[in-house]
Design a protein around this nucleic acid. Sequence first.
DNA 1: TTTAAATAATAGTATTACTATCTTAAATAA
DNA 2: TTATTTAAGATAGTAATACTATTATTTAAA
Lengths: 224, 224
Amino acid sequence: MKLALQINMNPSLYLRDPEGTDLGKNIIKHSIQLIHDTGFEAFTFKKLAESIGTTEAGVYRYFENKHKLLVYIISWYWRWLDFQIGYQTKNLTNPVSKLKKVITILATTVEDDLMTGHVDESILHQILISEGSKAFLTKQVNQDNKQEYFKPYKDLCNTVGEIILECNPKYKYPHSLASTIIEMAHLQNFFMNHLPLLTDFSKSKDEKEIIKYLEDLVFNTIRI
Amino acid sequence: MKLALQINMNPSLYLRDPEGTDLGKNIIKHSIQLIHDTGFEAFTFKKLAESIGTTEAGVYRYFENKHKLLVYIISWYWRWLDFQIGYQTKNLTNPVSKLKKVITILATTVEDDLMTGHVDESILHQILISEGSKAFLTKQVNQDNKQEYFKPYKDLCNTVGEIILECNPKYKYPHSLASTIIEMAHLQNFFMNHLPLLTDFSKSKDEKEIIKYLEDLVFNTIRI
DNA sequence: TTTAAATAATAGTATTACTATCTTAAATAA
DNA sequence: TTATTTAAGATAGTAATACTATTATTTAAA
């Protein structure tokens, strides 16, 4: 018996549902690995096809282009994070503990979740750090947004915003603070590892420091 | 008589100094316009050459590739911001006023500075919002960093960090908070205009709201 | 005035980002 | 069981990108 967590995705992101076939699952699995290894700029469908053992045309039958594949992968992770937050905070009654949990989830490199066979969440977390913002920092962002490509991000932001409001119902900027926490959980990690002088964690290079920084930022801001 | 502000750039960013010739200045001027119009992904040296009225080979004599040109442009703006902050805060004695000034400078779309003939700062500000993080979110970030490409960003971050410490010498994360302010001044602007549900400024779409959010964030965090 | 340097003009290459077509293999329906 | 749809594999082709190289022409400095 195998438990499976099914995350449902926006169908206009793909031509054929990658969850439905072995080749599809391989496309997801190998693209996560390859984007992580080479970076999104150098990532091509040809290299992906080679690493799977299929042809370029085979990949194109599933995804129109590499941008949509990136958005697929990134928004999959946003949904997964949203699910994790719901799951890991559902028994907590104290909103401050909830928010601390949220920060920890966002800022910690996760272990591979066995409930999602072909997706390695620990690599996905790295991709979100390095490539995440490339999903929306494009000229087509408004069109993509109309197609609801970023709904998972908005949902995640909303979940976090709700918890912020539980801590302090009068706080005026719950969504902005939520997106700040999410983005900074990733960006401070990138800076810590690659441009350490932009952070105060250059010595330890420890994720726990990022968590402490974010907790200090958030709880002072909402005055807890 | 013409006042000119000369910003000195890292020579390993270019093959020939673009500040030294008309063609060079045209490359900077038109690339700022073209990157803004088409986005960095669609920006090519061929299109740039056409818009200038020169040839592709002409551009390649100045810059090895479009990534270096982007880093050149972005780091020019970091330096300019750093200069602006120094200039506009030098007569302020109160550190809190200084920090407010900094936030305003970072979050406000500037007007074209006439001291820098061929550079339009208001467009550059837009480029920083949409393309800025692409300068460092690459696989080559460590190499680029060794070449000191991001020194202007670090200097800027340090300037802001110093002012934070003037406000509260005991605050523990001046660099991280500085990079958070800089990044969020840009990203909240992008979200406000393209993904408004990730912010709390969806109705007004007013930069002043971002400033208020950042001031609230910063001064509560450092407990002023 | 000579000479060196910068630019313009042109051509060429490997790779990328696709599209199209045709064949084969596997699953399903009649 | 056969017929038929459907997915996958194999191959080819194209326009654009990201360069490099070569030669000719103009401009500027010695």
